[in-house]
Nucleic acid binder design. Structure first.
Lengths: 130, 130
DNA sequence: ATTTCATATGCCATTATATGCATATGAAAT
DNA sequence: ATTTCATATGCATATAATGGCATATGAAAT
């Protein structure tokens, strides 16, 4: 609402900045790769990150307009915002060029975690806390 | 040489971070758009930025592997590194989606400044200092 | 109504980043 | 050799980002 852009490049720099952090970049990679929504506890387990940091990083991605939030009961699901412009499209493609083998562990944990869903619905929270 | 990557994503995050600053993003846009080398004094005049900041920002872009430096006498020219991979390619395309009309002033000043070259060589330094 | 669970957020310390200014470097001109 | 010019860099400071911890919120389960 009151988000005044200081300069006409803030949109672009915000997106680049959002992706300049490992955790956020991994989240984006996941979101783009699995091409479905994923809830916070799942991200926590997949990335082996703690709860509050994941939440904070998601907020930054959301503010940059990269992800979308959808509450479902106790859970909050996030997914990629989809094509909003040429720039975002190219950024998406850039993120997707990051090779899978840099994400092997995350991919494995993600498969495991998503397979725990019942009827496509997330039913369990976080196992591991660091 | 001793550049140890802390994590396998640093390459990507470094590039995104390099582009998360207005001045650096503008420099990249220019470099990609004019598709030729440009020296520091020219960048200073085109962006109406001061000398030391431009130098510092260029250093960051260089460290991210986005630009290349070439000394010619008193001048240091910078240009885009060219395709080094799919990721860099997409990032380049992303930057180039930023519409010209956000850069009208810079484009105008750039044309003016580059037209001052003699035989394609930069011959004058900076006019404006803030 | 209380507890539990999933997520968000506020506060603090630490660290990173950007800017301004002064000065250093190093090439060319005098 | 000295000066001038183009660029780089070190230092100080202001500001922002990050992570840890405690706690708040709000929905579901009991």
């Amino acid at each position: 609402m009151s988000e005044q852009k200081l300069n006409p490049f803030e949109h672009y720099t915000d997106i680049f900045k959002a992706l300049s952090d490992v955790t956020r970049l991994k989240i984006m990679w996941l979101l783009l790769s699995i091409d479905s929504k994923i809830c916070v506890s799942e991200i926590i387990d997949v990335l082996c990150e703690n709860q509050y940091n994941v939440s904070k990083h998601l907020k930054i991605l959301k503010k940059a307009g990269l992800v979308y939030e959808k509450k479902e009961g106790k859970w909050t699901f996030y997914h990629y915002c989809g094509s909003t412009g040429y720039f975002e499209d190219m950024v998406k493609k850039a993120v997707l060029t990051i090779p899978e083998d840099k994400m092997v562990n995350e991919i494995e944990r993600c498969k495991k975690r998503l397979s725990m869903r019942v009827d496509g619905k997330c039913v369990v929270g976080t196992e591991s806390e660091d």
